[in-house]
């Protein structure tokens, strides 16, 4: 059974939604089963006039996630934001692009700030209003990990969303602990014996979140909106800490064409480097299968940050990236 079939209610199954099943909308689908983004009434949590680069994956991922959370809560969402691109491009004085109550405090404290908001709601007995924290990969996997781990430990009623673009893009593309091995950044240049970012043992935050045994952990990608929205809505059906890790291509940091943002997100998933899965209380419960598997090279060659990896002299790096894709496919049961 294909993925779309699983997601469709029984009476909508099999025969009737071939035309653009994976598109944002589908005129043949019942309204209630279309994505939030397909609706004219969507909340546009981040609205026009923001200053994200052309083709910003994060601007898209954030609107997708927040709008889905808004629908799931009947528009009762408060969001906190770590310092980073998303914060900078949405709220330069005197203009904010957010249409929801939103706070930015610091780089490393979004999880704690949002826990504070949740604590106030708890003290008030307000069970309707829900909170979402957002950070980039640096703000989440590096500087913000302490606060985030604390939030997981307390099982505060928070959805934390990490928009992973694989580096500190706002400060000019430096390496974070989420930068993929081999990738060029301003602090891991393609020079020396092992060009690009080191292949460390890894700091894959979804696994770290799972180790906290919080109610729900999921990974998502901006190329598959149905999958992403379903995960956000599912996350909102739980109480306690929830974590969603969204892969968001960054044309600036990746050296890719702005128009290819969604294509790259898709290719990342289809080559196995970006596994999409869900876990509940620490246990893997579902994987989104790869639809058309592609070689990692097809994905890498569209990004200048990997251009050196494709040179014959750096075949070790390419081999290591291939191996990671294979490991993901095995480990997360992606086929």
């Amino acid at each position: 059974m294909s993925k779309c079939e699983q997601d469709m209610p029984t009476e909508q199954k099999v025969k009737f939604y071939q035309t653009g099943t994976f598109t944002v909308g589908n005129r043949l689908l019942d309204e209630e089963f279309r994505t939030v983004q397909a609706t004219q009434e969507r909340s546009n949590s981040i609205d026009s006039g923001h200053r994200a680069c052309q083709g910003c994956g994060q601007a898209l991922g954030a609107r997708y996630a927040l709008d889905a959370a808004m629908r799931a809560t009947d528009n009762h969402i408060i969001a906190a934001n770590a310092t980073g691109c998303l914060e900078v491009f949405t709220t330069p004085y005197p203009e904010t692009a957010w249409s929801i109550p939103w706070i930015h405090s610091l780089f490393g404290n979004a999880a704690a700030v949002v826990s504070g908001i949740a604590a106030r709601l708890k003290a008030e007995g307000d069970t309707q209003t829900r909170v979402v924290a957002q950070g980039g990969d640096g703000g989440t996997t590096d500087i913000g990990l302490g606060c985030l781990s604390g939030m997981f430990d307390r099982n505060d009623d928070v959805l934390y969303i990490c928009y992973d673009n694989g580096g500190y893009m706002n400060t000019g593309v430096q390496r974070s602990s989420a930068t993929p091995g081999g990738a060029r950044t301003a602090t891991t240049m393609p020079v020396g014996e092992h060009p690009g970012s080191s292949f460390n043992t890894g700091k894959f935050l979804p696994s770290i979140a799972m180790a906290h045994e919080i109610p729900y952990v999921a990974t998502a990608s901006v190329h598959d909106l149905h999958d992403l929205e379903r995960k956000v809505e599912k996350a909102m059906s739980f109480r306690g800490s929830r974590y969603i890790h969204i892969n968001v291509p960054c044309p600036l940091g990746w050296g890719s064409e702005p128009a290819l943002t969604i294509k790259l997100a898709r290719m990342g998933v289809e080559c196995g480097l970006v596994p999409l899965f869900e876990a509940e209380s620490g246990e893997l419960t579902a994987s989104t299968k790869i639809r058309y598997q592609i070689p990692v090279e097809d994905y890498l060659k569209l990004q200048r940050r990997f251009s050196h990896v494709l040179k014959p002299a750096n075949s070790d790096e390419l081999e290591a990236i291939r191996a990671l894709a294979q490991k993901n496919i095995r480990r997360f049961n992606l086929r």
Binding site: G20, V24, S48
Partner: peptide, 13 residues
């Protein structure tokens, strides 16, 4: 065919 893709994926609304 009104799949809403362009509408949905525009990062700038």
């Amino acid at each position: 065919f009104e799949c809403d893709n362009c509408y949905g994926i525009c990062p700038d609304n």
